[in-house]
Write a protein that binds this DNA or RNA. Structure first.
Lengths: 114, 114
DNA sequence: AGAAGGTAGCTTGCAATACAAAGTAGTGTA
DNA sequence: TACACTACTTTGTATTGCAAGCTACCTTCT
C-alpha cells in the first residue's frame, strides 16, 4: 500500500474543481493551469489535464478560443461558460461538505488558515 | 456532468483514510463503519466497503477477529496493525496537504471549525 | 421442524479518472 | 533544412467507488 498511490487517489475527483477555479479567475491555457497547480503542490501531468479539459468542454462548462502566443505555437485559452460558473458554485459547497465530513470522521484538526 | 457523480469522484481516495481512522479509535465491524460514515454524511455502500477492508487487510494495515453478536450472525471486527497506525499518521499529513493545496488553488475560504 | 425476517459478509461487472508514455504540430533559430 | 522549444492530443493501464446480486448465520414465528 504505497503512500504515493494514496496521494494520487486522493487527488482524483478534486482536480475538476481546482481547474474550474483556476479558469474562473482568469482565462488560461494548459501550461498556465499546470504551473498554477504545481505552485499549489498539486502535480498533474498533461495526460490528465487535456482529457479533463476536453470533458469539461464537452459538458458545456468550458469554452475556448485560439490565441497567438508571443513566440511559439498558438494557444488554446479556456473560459468558464455560464453553466460552468453555476457548476463551480455547487462544487464550492460540495468540497466544503467533503472536508467537513472527512474531518469529522477522522477527528482531524485542520491546520488550514483560509 | 452530474454533481452527484462529482461527489462520488471526490469521495474516491479518501475513504481509506476515513475507515482507518474509524478503526483506529475503536475496533469495528462493517455495519459500525457504515453507520459512522453515514453519521458524517459520507454515504458508502457494502460493495465499496468490503473490498476496501479486504485490501487494507491484505496490505497488512488491518487485522480482524470473529466475535459473536448478541442476536445475529457472528461479526468480523477489525483493528489497526502497528503498520496501520504508522500509515494513518502519514495519511493525516497527506490529507492536510491536499486540503491546503485545494483551498489555495480554489481561493476557498473554509467554513470548517475543527 | 421449516419458513420468514433480519443481520452480516462477499463478489463481480461497470463507470470514471489519474498516470505514463508516445506522438503530432507550430514557431523560431542556427 | 534541422533542431529545439512550446503546445496539444491520445491511448493503454491501474485503481477505486457503485449497483446489484448472492450466501450464510441467528432468532422468531407458524
Amino acid at each position: 500500500m504505497k503512500l504515493e498511490n494514496t496521494k494520487i487517489q486522493m487527488r482524483k475527483g478534486v482536480l475538476e474543481y481546482c481547474i474550474l477555479s483556476i479558469i474562473a479567475r482568469k482565462e488560461a491555457y494548459a501550461s498556465d493551469i499546470l504551473n498554477t497547480l504545481k505552485g499549489a503542490q498539486l502535480l498533474v501531468v498533461e495526460g490528465t489535464l487535456y482529457p479533463l479539459l476536453t470533458r469539461l468542454k464537452n459538458s458545456g462548462l468550458l469554452s475556448y478560443s485560439w490565441q497567438e502566443s508571443t513566440g511559439g505555437p498558438p494557444r488554446k485559452y479556456y473560459q468558464l461558460t455560464e453553466l460552468g460558473e453555476q457548476f463551480l458554485k455547487e462544487l464550492d459547497l460540495t468540497w466544503n461538505d467533503l472536508v467537513h465530513a472527512v474531518n469529522v470522521t477522522t477527528n482531524h484538526k485542520s491546520n488550514d488558515h483560509e
